[in-house]
Design a protein around this nucleic acid. Sequence first.
RNA 1: GUCCCCAUCGUCUAGCCUGGUCCAGGACGACGGCCUUUCACGCCGUUAACAGGGGUUCAAAUCCCCUUGGGGACGCCA
Length: 475
Amino acid sequence: MTIVTRFAPSPTGYLHIGGARTALFSWLLAKNQGGTFLLRVEDTDRERSTQAATDAIIEAMAWLDLAAEGTAVFQSQRFDLYNSHIDTLLETGRAYWCQCTPDEVEAMREKARAEGRKPKYDGRCRELGLGPGAGRVVRFKGPQDGVTNFLDMVKGPTAVQNAEMDDMILRRSDGSPTYNLAVVVDDHDMGVTVVLRGDDHVANTPRQILLYQAFGWNVPNFGHVPMILGPDKAKLSKRHGALSVMEYRTLGYLPEALVNYLARLGWSHGDQEIFSREELVRLFSTGNLGNSPSVFDVKKLEWLNAHYIKESAPGRLAALLPEYLAQAGPAGADNLDGLNLDPGYLASIVPLLQPRAKTLVEMAAMAHFFLVPTARLDYDEKAVAEHLKPGSRELLARLLPIYEAAPDYSDHKALEAATQAFLDEGNLKFKAVAQPLRVALTGKTASPGLFETMGVLGKTESLARIRQALALVEE
RNA sequence: GUCCCCAUCGUCUAGCCUGGUCCAGGACGACGGCCUUUCACGCCGUUAACAGGGGUUCAAAUCCCCUUGGGGACGCCA
């Protein structure tokens, strides 16, 4: 039997980190076993489900490259299927109509809580033999004693007293099916053999198993992945600044970095930290999933992102860069006006920035001075005051003819050698010219290597910037 | 409140199932140093954990029990 896994998000919000991780694990498990990974959109709650959220989830999965087989299943389009199965349960006596109002049920729960018992519906309509009627719901007639157990793929043997579970609603008073019913019908119908989901679903699993048994269907394997927590160890939420997957893209993270990070959060393979997609597929196993919750650590994500930035082909990063450039200028310069975005030029800049940027946002900020026309170069005032004093200006002025005479800027070693020769002659230290020249070329005190920078800027641009800096000082 | 789950450096984790090779290993971070034209990269080093208490055993991070701490679930949400 070939394995079939699925990811079943509810489109009431964007795809968040926790969801992305369970999706990744389910995808990896399927691929590892040569099986199939499916996507199902759980939009039975029409009030809260939106098309925008559905689109966003699909977009995020695409960005992470977690492709599902075939087209997504939408629960909202399958109400007839669910209802026919509810009717079957009604016919076989495994379900019954209940006339209790939400308020009445709430009162029962309150009473139970007050008496120190588990709050639940008391089953008073179980044997009433009620039929359909306004305001009535269909409840599952569950066993009231005995134990339901299953072998959780990550937690191990798990058992729940049936008495702990109340008779869950299968069909609401408005005729719509509830979550547990729809999930079971769909997982069966879609041929799902392994359900890997978040820990917050453990309590649903025995209920669902009861439904499988009532239908006489094969029960799939279940695995519950521990939650992701915020720095305060509480379930990761908006409150912690928990971001959607796509916001990580906006922040300049590469999808493979997020995937690698997420994979290592709660899963491990010895001491290995860096995993290619192929390695992940080959090595993934639920046996290596941890069983305690883990805290999300942005620092480690940053480290991985920096790693993947260094590994990426310059052309790829150059193509991604413009998306981040609009925000990258100094305060106020929030557009791409006049920037040199030639792909070849960008690709020549990227290698100088790869070892320096932890995110594409940082890279864009560092790339900015390369792209702006000399006339609009932004100078750091303190840098100018500090490094373009008269003495420095004189040195730069003496250096200028040497750079004017240099024939080939693509050979940055030659530029360096020429500079060194000049310094030797005057018995000067490199430090004497380094920062003045840097400020002249970049407007800042921190940048990639001077001569590599000149090499990328090219002769015309480099000379223009040095001349402009000299003029700047004269003012 | 009831039920369920979890517990190794600040964080992610290896080791635990199949006790000894663990005065607990790796990684991120932090700190220090080296390299160096700046900023980074890189390299080297330091820091830091078996929650506590009882057992079992010649021997326990590893097995058992209790305590404590944390988390989750208890919807006509999913």
